[in-house]
Each structure stands twice: as structure tokens, then as C-alpha cells.
């Protein structure tokens, strides 16, 4: 199994899964806080429409976890300000 790094921790994934699928497979359904109410958010629509699953990939923010395929060595951060 390959791995990506999420907030410094290794996360295994099956080749072909998106970053969101890898996170959900590990039991994580939320990885972000909203800008105003600081509510937890994660995967919702799963097909790139709702933008709830935003995170930072290899230093670039605003990435939809449900669309980006996980690649070995990818660095993911799920800071609170991904929406800000």
C-alpha cells in the first residue's frame, strides 16, 4: 500500500483512490473548519461540486480532496484556514 502525508502523519491509500477516499477509509469525514462558525467539514458531495472538502496539497490551497487522486509522497495539510 502507498502512503501520503497528512498533517505530518502517514496515511495509507490504495492506488486509484482520491485523497478524500483515503481519508474516509481511515475513518476521517471532517478535516476543515468553516470561516465564520468554525464548524467541522469534510466530504459532502464527493464529486467536486460543494467545495466542503478543501485542503492544501503540496503547498497549494483550495484543492478538492474528492477530485485529486492520491499519489505516493503527496503532502496534504488540513489547516483550519483552508477556507480563509
Amino acid at each position: 500500500m502507498s502512503e501520503i502525508t497528512v498533517d505530518g502523519e502517514p496515511l495509507p491509500f490504495v492506488e486509484g483512490q482520491t485523497v478524500a477516499a483515503a481519508l474516509v477509509a481511515a475513518g476521517r469525514v471532517a478535516w476543515r473548519s468553516t470561516r465564520v462558525g468554525h464548524r467541522p467539514r469534510g466530504v459532502f458531495c464527493g464529486i467536486g461540486v460543494c467545495f466542503d472538502c478543501l485542503l492544501t496539497i503540496d503547498g497549494t490551497g483550495g484543492q478538492r480532496a474528492c477530485l485529486v487522486p492520491a499519489r505516493p509522497g503527496m503532502t496534504v495539510t488540513t489547516r483550519e484556514d483552508d477556507d480563509e
Binding site: V29, A30, R39, P40, R41, G42, V43, F44, C45, G46, I47, C50, C66
Partner: peptide, 10 residues
């Protein structure tokens, strides 16, 4: 909007 609530399509 709670985590774990998804669209059916999701």
C-alpha cells in the same frame, strides 16, 4: 452540515 452527512451521490 455535520461531518458524516453526505449527499447520496457522495
Amino acid at each position: 452540515d455535520l461531518p458524516g452527512v453526505l449527499t447520496a451521490g457522495g
